[in-house]
């Protein structure tokens, strides 16, 4: 065991270290970190969330959309103005900025068929 006089105080670590740490974590871990203490709740909200390979918006109907961000899905995201406000609030509490390798937008009609779709890739123009 180390005889160092240091005591573990994660919050005393340099800000750049904590920001880098959060960029290495997925959305699920960021959500859990929000619940640990006030400082991490703030930190999660104020740090770059990093890179996700894929993201998508699936629109099933006027009242039902799903937004996928990395390993998480936000359900029924656009169900009315109040829900939209809730979504924007959550988004601002989870990350200040994120980037995607590929972002897909899909509209699915009542028969379950894809009526419209667009894929945006980081390295190529919109298809």
């Amino acid at each position: 065991s180390h005889s160092s006089p240091y005591t573990m105080d994660i919050l005393a670590l340099p800000d750049i270290f904590l920001r880098d740490l959060l960029r290495l974590l997925g959305i699920g871990d960021r959500m859990n970190l929000r619940l640990t203490c006030r400082t991490f709740e703030q930190l999660v909200a104020n740090t770059h969330a990093g890179y996700f390979k894929e993201g998508s918006i699936y629109r099933y109907s006027e009242s039902c959309q799903a937004i996928c961000l990395g390993d998480k899905q936000i359900r029924n995201a656009m169900q009315g103005e109040a829900k939209l406000r809730q979504l924007l609030h959550l988004r601002s509490r989870l990350f200040s900025r994120i980037s995607f390798g590929k972002f897909k937008i899909k509209c699915i009609n009542s028969q379950g068929e894809v009526s419209k779709q667009q894929t945006l890739c980081a390295s190529s123009p919109p298809s």
Partner: peptide, 23 residues
């Protein structure tokens, strides 16, 4: 080694926000 400094109400509010996301 963090101490939870939220009130029960605050925790409930954050859990409610987090519930919007699912795996």
């Amino acid at each position: 080694q963090l101490e939870c400094d939220f009130t029960e109400e605050e925790l409930a509010e954050i859990r409610k926000e987090n519930a919007w996301c699912e795996n």
